[in-house]
Design a protein around this nucleic acid. Structure first.
Lengths: 183, 183
DNA sequence: AACATGTGTTCATTATATAGAACAGTTGGT
DNA sequence: ACCAACTGTTCTATATAATGAACACATGTT
């Protein structure tokens, strides 16, 4: 049985860490007193809607995402691999890449990247799994110590709560990224 | 372009009507002043977390449900649209296409389709939402009575519990499809 | 070592959200 | 007709959330 205070405290800490911000930084960015934020994360606070909204905006997440309940293998399926679900009527093939468990919170991103220094992601919340489907170009994706090169159409999933990278190898690299937070 | 005030005002009115309660009833049930609730729904208010929590509890819904965005019919985000999350280090742009609620069971598919008779899907379970990101080619996607043409990189979401189609318009059409069962 | 800049905390004051009373308008019963 | 019980609104007193300064501590620089 979580109280509102505990709830928002852990949610804030979680999202703030995910964004890689300190209390001071977030407070400044959201234009709220850092004392306010400090007390909030300490569990002794009853923030107003405006305060929460400002924090969510500064964290770059939709507001309601902030108040959501909290919540190793690496899989690569190349184009042409995987069991397809064909439709008799037309040339339509659906390949199940990942059957999702219940109680999963997933965000869908479109990634545009250009060659250069790779984007290293700090680990997200525990239990996070990321799925990448490369649309165009080529990219080196996955755990920081064992990334894999993906070509257009390739699918890959890996743990998002461990350090991982996304490095475009060609200009105009585009991908779909699904970040899934398992409870 | 919604302000926190408008947002919570409409959300409260929506959920309260759904529960079939009057302002007075809800206020009594949630142990908040009915004047408070009145002002909130009028859009002139900045409720505290405790107030919102009490209201959600009285409405018989988990707190986050109160602040969940309305699941609107169809969303299309063209390439280049949407607010990007840029990484300073490299040319990497992540666009949030859909932030997913918890308690969602989602399956990820890769779709390969060729021009021909469209694939008509019979409605799935109630509450199902489908997300499509077109990888290559061109496709006519969406509700059967108002489909939209997608180009590579385009994102679209629509209700999966209503009849919908996927019709490839070019050879070598590839897409990512995420089928999401809410609740 | 002394200093500057960062961190997160605790404490004053000030701004404001909340609660409850008083209000006018509706509905239904006697 | 009155009266009672309801609706949602506008008021004011009070409780309290937000603030910024002062604080102790850590880190890196000259």
């Amino acid at each position: 049985m979580t109280t509102p205070q505990e709830f928002i405290a852990s949610a804030l800490a979680r999202e703030r860490n995910r964004a890689g911000l300190t209390i001071s930084e977030l407070a400044r960015k959201a234009a709220v007193g850092k004392s306010t934020l400090s007390q909030l994360e300490a569990g002794s606070g009853n923030p107003s809607l405006e305060t929460l909204w400002s924090l969510a905006t500064a964290l770059g997440i939709p507001f309601w995402r902030l108040v959501e309940p909290v919540t190793d293998a690496v899989t690569v399926i190349r184009v042409g691999e995987g069991r397809g679900i064909e439709a008799a009527e037309s040339k339509y093939i659906g390949t199940l890449l990942s059957a999702g468990p219940k109680s999963a919170c997933r965000d869908i991103y479109r990634i545009s990247a250009e060659p250069g220094p790779p984007r290293k992601s700090t680990p997200h919340a525990a239990g996070t799994v990321e799925h990448v489907i490369l649309i165009a170009g080529r990219a080196l994706v996955g755990p920081i110590d064992s990334p894999t090169t993906l070509n257009p159409g390739d699918y890959m999933s890996y743990r998002g709560d461990a350090p991982h990278i996304f490095e475009a190898l060609e200009t105009g690299t585009i991908a779909t990224l699904i970040s899934e937070s398992l409870l």
